[in-house]
């Protein structure tokens, strides 16, 4: 941590402001100006761990879809890039490829987190000769290849990009990409935790209100134990995320710990959503309930930059190859 750590009271105050801010943002809208008005840059500089976790947890809780994550990754990529000609967005590797950018000699394939209104250029990571290069493409050159990623997560503003790659190359920046992926995974873990917390709140309220056999169904152990397990899963995910931030200053940006944080959050969302859907019964199955929005959002976030099954395997392989598991707990 570089600056002054945020205390609990300030954090709570900021969480309240963020909730208001996120409630007022339209789908795919820009968070940037509102965050600037809040003085977010200063908060972030003071205590990046608390600030990032807070912003993305609230982002998840509010089920907002925005390009806020771009700022997290671009902050790591910018030093390796030529000066920006206007505002930038990032093309993420397609979820099917985990965190591995598509080959430079093949077509474009990836996702944007929102439409490119007001964006001047897009940073397109690609793989050339086994290394990540960062190609900068004019937003207008990309527009034709992109379209809304409709279907699964109905509230999402994501765009799938698939089509011929515009000519051009860029600097090799494998280290910057590794750090960016680590930073992105920490933010995504926080966002999944937020979605989980919100789903748990819904399930808690539903099972407390819903009466069967003359009593609230949350008083049945079969129901309340599922929710307790969900709570344990979220708590564990938050612990691994907090631990991952203690490793963020490492040479590779705390890569292994960040992967573990996203792995744990991904496992948590799978468990929380399974339990939440079950205890909400038939009411949770219909789109009249808000629950489906949590289920699809959490699954989509899990898939970005490596889903939990794939991450478990790569993190396990890294462990067996002697990955530096940063001593996460320091006195």
């Amino acid at each position: 941590m570089t600056g002054t750590a945020l205390d609990a009271a300030t954090t709570e105050l900021l969480a309240g402001s963020l909730r208001e801010l996120l409630a007022s943002v339209s789908a795919g809208g820009e968070l940037g100006p509102a965050l600037d008005a809040l003085g977010w840059a200063e908060v972030l500089a003071d205590d990046p761990a608390t600030a990032t976790t807070l912003l993305f947890t609230e982002h998840g809780r509010a089920l907002v879809s925005s390009r806020a994550l771009d700022d997290v990754l671009l902050a790591e990529l910018d030093p390796a890039l030529p000066p920006a000609a206007g505002s930038r967005a990032l093309l993420y590797p397609h979820p099917a490829e985990g965190a591995d950018p598509a080959p430079l000699d093949g077509p474009l394939w990836g996702v944007l987190l929102g439409p490119l209104h007001g964006v001047d250029e897009v940073v397109v990571p690609a793989t050339a000769e086994g290394r990540t290069v960062l190609v900068t493409v004019a937003a207008t050159d990309l527009a034709a290849a992109g379209g809304p990623a409709t279907g699964f997560d109905l509230g999402s503003t994501w765009h799938t990009v698939a089509g011929p790659r515009p000519p051009g190359s860029g600097p090799p920046a494998p280290e910057a990409w590794t750090r960016a992926v680590a930073a992105g995974r920490r933010a995504l873990a926080a966002e999944m935790i937020g979605v989980c917390e919100s789903a748990l709140t819904l399930a808690t309220a539903h099972t407390t209100d819903r009466v069967q056999y003359g009593r609230p169904i949350a008083s049945f152990q079969a129901v309340r134990h599922r929710l307790a397990e969900a709570y344990v899963a979220v708590t564990a995910a938050r612990a691994v995320l907090d631990a991952a931030w203690t490793a963020a200053g490492g040479a590779d940006g705390g890569g292994w710990a960040a992967a573990a944080a996203k792995l744990q959050a991904g496992r948590a969302q799978a468990q929380v959503m399974r339990h939440a859907v079950q205890v909400c019964g038939a009411m949770g199955l219909s789109q009249e309930s808000e629950l489906h929005r949590h289920v699809t959002r959490a699954a989509a976030l899990d898939a970005l930059l490596g889903g939990h099954m794939a991450l478990a395997e790569s993190a396990g392989a890294a462990l067996l190859a002697g990955a530096d598991v940063h001593p996460v707990v320091e006195l």
Partner: peptide, 27 residues
Amino acid sequence: RLEDAASRRRLAELVADLTATEYLNHQ
């Protein structure tokens, strides 16, 4: 069993769980 994908996956999950417990105890 170093090359066994299922074992690697479970090892990573277990280490993540151990990390969580260690951090919770620390807190």
